[in-house]
Amino acid sequence: MSMKVRRLGRDTLDLLLLIFLLGGAVVALLGAEFFPTELAGTVEPIAQGPSFRHILGTDTLGRDMLARLLEGMRTTMGVGIGATLLAIILGSIYGGLAGLAGPRTDEAMMRGVDVGFALPYMFLVILLVSFFGRSMTLLFIALGLVAWLPLARVVRAGVRNLRHEPFLEAARMMGGSHGYVLRAHLFPQLGTPLVVYATLMLPVVMMQEAFLSFLGLGVKPPMASWGTLVAEGVERMETAPWILIVAGGSLALWLIGLHLAGDRLARRLNVHRTTGTPEKIMAVGPAPDGQDQEDGGAAS
């Protein structure tokens, strides 16, 4: 009985979580349409605390904080999802090919990933964005390039585990190319873990966006992102604390929600059967000896 109650509680919590995340996304998507950000230079009072007219107060240029926040949410989610998608695409192709290739190509490709891990990525991103200006496209490409490496490992591990399944052997025996095998047989199988890893990756990418914003390398104004708003809030912590409270608080809540969702999804869908536990895979350190090779370079 008590077990059942707990389970029910869990399900309800998961549902609430889902509603929270989806609701946030919808609000971000549509809210910015209904409450568009005014251009600066209005007659509205600047840096004003919450009031009836402006529920969340105004920012330092007299713009409504609620509108800014909604716009910022949309930007950050856009950048985050874009970067994650890019990482998934790159990681899947690379990891999938490595997984299917012969041991030598596989080895070489995974050494390539090692080189990638040894690059101080965030520093290259900082250089890239500070040298070549700030655009949303550049931002999500740069962040996507940071995030694809662990995904390449996830996919490769999944493919390695699946490659001796009869349906794959059959597909290959019928003369299917690597590309065909990946597309038609492997990706459908790996879809579930990829969704889970994407969920776990998303908050990390969004945090990196905030980090770049603090360094003044975020999106281009007057566009706002969650990160730029939080950075602005930190800057005005003493004189306009509500900016930090509103922007920082909502960002933190959303990130916590995403992390939780990732955890729950991983547990529910049991992804570690295919690819190993998320914790181990997301531990994106050096290729731990024996992990890359656990199914043996010599197995085929």
């Binding site: 908050p203 945090m207 905030a210 980090f211 603090f214 990160g227 939080v230 950075a231 809030g233 930190v234 930090l244 920082g248 960002l251 933190a252 809540l253 990130l255 916590i256 992390h259 939780l260």
Partner: peptide
Amino acid sequence: ALVALAVPVFV
């Protein structure tokens, strides 16, 4: 742990 993860260093 989640809160620690979700609060940016610069905050």
